[in-house]
Design a binder for these strands. Structure first.
Lengths: 304, 304
DNA sequence: GCCACGGATGAAACTTACTTTCAGAGAGGT
DNA sequence: ACCTCTCTGAAAGTAAGTTTCATCCGTGGC
């Protein structure tokens, strides 16, 4: 029963901790307790025996084993070793920087800046680490051969969708971003085989986006999901799943690190598509750049 | 050969492999066989069970345990996780990260991903490093005390503007983002003392944005510029200048790293404003999060 | 409101891995 | 030749990890 039928963007080779935190919401409560312990202090978890860890998570050994399987490990010893390895590789963050956690109430701006930058940068790095080039390749191919590309996203993810749309458009690809559900549904209904629909949702649970993607799929379009959680509902209606690796800080409804991670993936896909047809893409970029030239002031004397 | 039963204190943290190879000659033949296997491939040894390793070394489990004790470990599991950790640390990724520069024409997706992520992450980090907390503080104060906040940006910077607008709105601040020059000008004309106008432009030369910011300033509003170039035209019409530190790669018209850097600054300002009024901001976020709750599918729970 | 179903969970049975014990083999030393 | 001391693996013993299964609880159908 340990089969992953879906093409997923998670490397089995690295970023186990990231992988686990992405899976966290899709796990059962007891397994989540185990997962949180593991993510919080991998090195410590590696030192514990299964009984020890089970007790710490207030559950049974059986659940710990289930957790191991859920995250793709064969058994507890395997998990232990991987955790030890990951923890060793991990660079300890500079003291003042609060990792993934809360920003302390009394923090001054300098601290806030350091924390945000640290988390944002890490989200970008970890996302890239666990991105599967093979899946990206397939998505790039699909976009490249598509007659039309539809991109859906709500709220913060909507800006990401628009950004992607704009980028594709600038290199001469027909792409649309629909921030409105009704328009999106209408558009999705007109998609067909060979077209591509991309749904962006950090949580993977935004029903509007899921619904539209499903519609697109029913019409025969190739569907792509971009989400932080590899087992969230959106992945069920997607042919290809690309995952981000952001652990949101406080104000998580504010979607900070997650959208940077999404944009990084967008960049990768964009450059991938552009690279498929270098000269044409470059020319298109030059032409569009020229077009806005008259809207620029002075010669942009760039120092810095 | 007087075998030392007591092993001199080893560093808990590192150099186990070196330590072992140093002890090698002083070990008994059977233990040496074990030791050589371990030194030759620590990662592989960590993967084996004690029986497995014993067989590979053509000896018994008992000898492996003796070996563990000889090198100062409590037992085999302890040795295993230490080996895994050391092996992981040892394999420092030499990396094919193309620093700053262009993406080579023949690059495959993996290279592209690594390059983009590296540059994106660096832009975020370097931006945070050179951000002046004092200036941020003043900007945060201005926004905090503002009756109304207008945010201007074109193209890619327009999405950043909208993102910021949305964030401020979610914590109960009156903010507007104007992607259209005419609407923006109209809005700017209605600003007054105490209001804040923020202009976002990577190059700092987007005439639409500069113009609008100038208008806002003429009306008495406090003006803020967010740009990558500290001496660009936009800084001349701004009371406060916040700079990003993105060095764009190819396809720079595609604005990749720059918008991540901009978003990082937006995050900092946003959290800064939210931190000024913690409880109120948090409540607002909760309320807004609740509002979209019905637009979510399932609890992201899924077993398979 | 009741029942059927299915997933989540821990107790206990079970298996495998690890550790200890012990006796035999072999290398000096006397 | 005999002692003795270390090295060694077989086997017994213990702890760790894994599987099975009965129970519980929430969900959705009638």
């Amino acid at each position: 029963m340990a089969k992953t039928t879906k093409v997923s963007a998670t490397h089995e080779s690295s970023g186990l901790i990231v992988h686990i935190s992405g899976l966290l919401p899709s796990l059962s409560p007891a397994e989540q307790r185990v997962g949180r312990l593991v993510v919080a202090d991998p090195a410590d978890a590696a030192r514990r025996t299964i009984t020890d860890l089970a007790t710490a998570a207030e559950t049974s050994e059986a659940t710990v084993i289930r957790f191991c399987r859920s995250v793709g490990m064969e058994g507890y010893p395997q998990l232990r070793i991987r955790l030890a390895a990951e923890a060793a590789r991990r660079v300890e963050p500079p003291d003042a920087r609060v990792v993934g956690g809360d920003i302390p109430p009394g923090a001054d701006l300098a601290q806030i800046i350091a924390t945000i930058a640290f988390n944002d940068a890490r989200a970008v790095e970890e996302t890239a680490e666990q991105l599967d080039p093979a899946v990206c390749e397939q998505v790039v191919d699909a976009i490249n051969g598509a007659g039309r590309v539809d991109i859906y996203g709500a709220a913060a993810s909507g800006f990401v969708a628009s950004d992607f749309q704009q980028k594709l458009h600038r290199i001469g690809r027909t792409a649309f971003a629909w921030p409105d559900v009704h328009l999106a549904l209408t558009s999705a209904a007109l998609l067909g085989k060979g077209d591509v629909a991309i749904g962006i949702s950090h949580s993977g649970t935004t029903s509007d986006v899921v619904e539209v993607l499903q519609q697109a799929r029913a019409r025969g379009a190739t569907t792509v999901a971009l989400t932080n959680f590899p087992r969230s509902p959106i992945t069920e209606v997607a042919d290809f799943v690309l995952t981000t690796a952001a652990r949101e800080t406080t104000y998580r409804s504010g979607a900070m690190a997650s959208r940077l991670a999404q944009l990084t993936v967008v960049d990768c896909l964009f450059v991938g598509v552009a690279a498929r047809n270098r000269t044409k893409a470059r020319r298109a970029l030059e032409v569009t750049a020229e077009a806005v030239q008259t809207h620029r002031v002075g010669g942009a004397r760039r120092s810095r």
